[in-house]
Design a protein around this nucleic acid. Sequence first.
DNA 1: CAGTGGTCTAGACCACTGG
DNA 2: CAGTGGTCTAGACCACTGC
Lengths: 237, 237
Amino acid sequence: MGITQPETVQEPKYWQLKSVLSDALDTEFAVGEILPNERDLAARFGVARATLRQALDQLELEGRLQRRRGVGTTVAPPRIGVPVASGPQTWPGEQELWEPVACALAPAPAAVARLLGIGRAEPVHTVRRTHARQGQPVAAQLLYVLPAFVPACDGAAPAGAVLAALGRLAPATGDRTVELGSARAEDARELDRLPGAPVLLVTTRYTAGARTVAVAVDTYRADTCRLTLGDAELLAS
Amino acid sequence: MGITQPETVQEPKYWQLKSVLSDALDTEFAVGEILPNERDLAARFGVARATLRQALDQLELEGRLQRRRGVGTTVAPPRIGVPVASGPQTWPGEQELWEPVACALAPAPAAVARLLGIGRAEPVHTVRRTHARQGQPVAAQLLYVLPAFVPACDGAAPAGAVLAALGRLAPATGDRTVELGSARAEDARELDRLPGAPVLLVTTRYTAGARTVAVAVDTYRADTCRLTLGDAELLAS
DNA sequence: CAGTGGTCTAGACCACTGG
DNA sequence: CAGTGGTCTAGACCACTGC
């Protein structure tokens, strides 16, 4: 007989489970529908809850599911396309989607201070904003602006003044990076997620001449967002 | 006495652990150094291994750690900046970093077929390439090109012909999206990771006139890569 | 209040790496 | 081969949501 019937042997249970569930989501469930609870699902598939959860974790990471404590697990809608063009809010009409939340004059995190080329204790203007789309919070932003660039304010400046200063810089293309991160406690609260949730970190550097004068860190929900870079966000699912 | 001394109470253990470890990484370890094994670490902190692993998972997600089965856990170097400009390999000199791996004429995945506006069974030219930087694999790419755009080949075309056809389109800016995904088995192998590892999915659409004629799906290791969008990748850590 | 997902435990076995 | 990280189990308790 076949000495070798090797394939299909070792594939982790949670990986097979994920495939099965993924197919089921495509065929048997509608967006928004709620799934059976984790204990029932685990029993149905004959695995421990932890194993079932590993599969659900992956599906949530891929934006297929949405879980909420005390409520249940629902089938997620397609990811929302969020334009991330050259200047962050240089788009006409986009400006208004960002809602200022707080404003302060305080030292920036070490990583930001390094980008700005200042000491760790030097205070900078800090503005926190949030971005909603289709009714749900999608991104949290932290803006750090060198005090020298916000005119005539000792102490904390109003958010408007800081934003105006930034607006004058916007056309100057800042470099930009995208990377994976996990939500800090504060951002998680704004995004209606638990701390540690996966997020896409978009870092923008604003320059005046050769100097970096401001840094923006945008924190996007990785489960519900798809960043669109070109002109078109017509990559609908 | 204070009835309320509420703060600091409920923060998950793995979250505190992560902070402690994160600090330790900054101060007590050098890049490439290997940490104590998970069982020892768990014992040292007085938690179960599963809990310790939750913390390590997060740190790995953030690119601070690198774990390899059978070997150990090491401190990861800073993320590699990978330029992601308008056309994917329109950069002079960048072209050579992509190494062709395989080439075929086969049906594309459903999601890609939809973008190309063709049926699920229609075959397209498919090229698989990999991208290495600083000696390690960083991205896997799948190119899908409509047969009508690869001249004079029935059956499978050589990779060169497909790439040449794409080269003629490259300057035409395609739209582009970035989102979080998990590595499929095949990509995971190319990237030297386990299936399911977090990846950044960059999808590029190539158009000729109004028609989408090709689609590229780039799969970047999310733990080791930072995508740079602007001109400069000088955001060194 | 009952029901949900989130955290945690203490074990076990497996797959892989290196000497 | 010994040692590592990866998977899996069967249970427990907690935090949160909604009725």
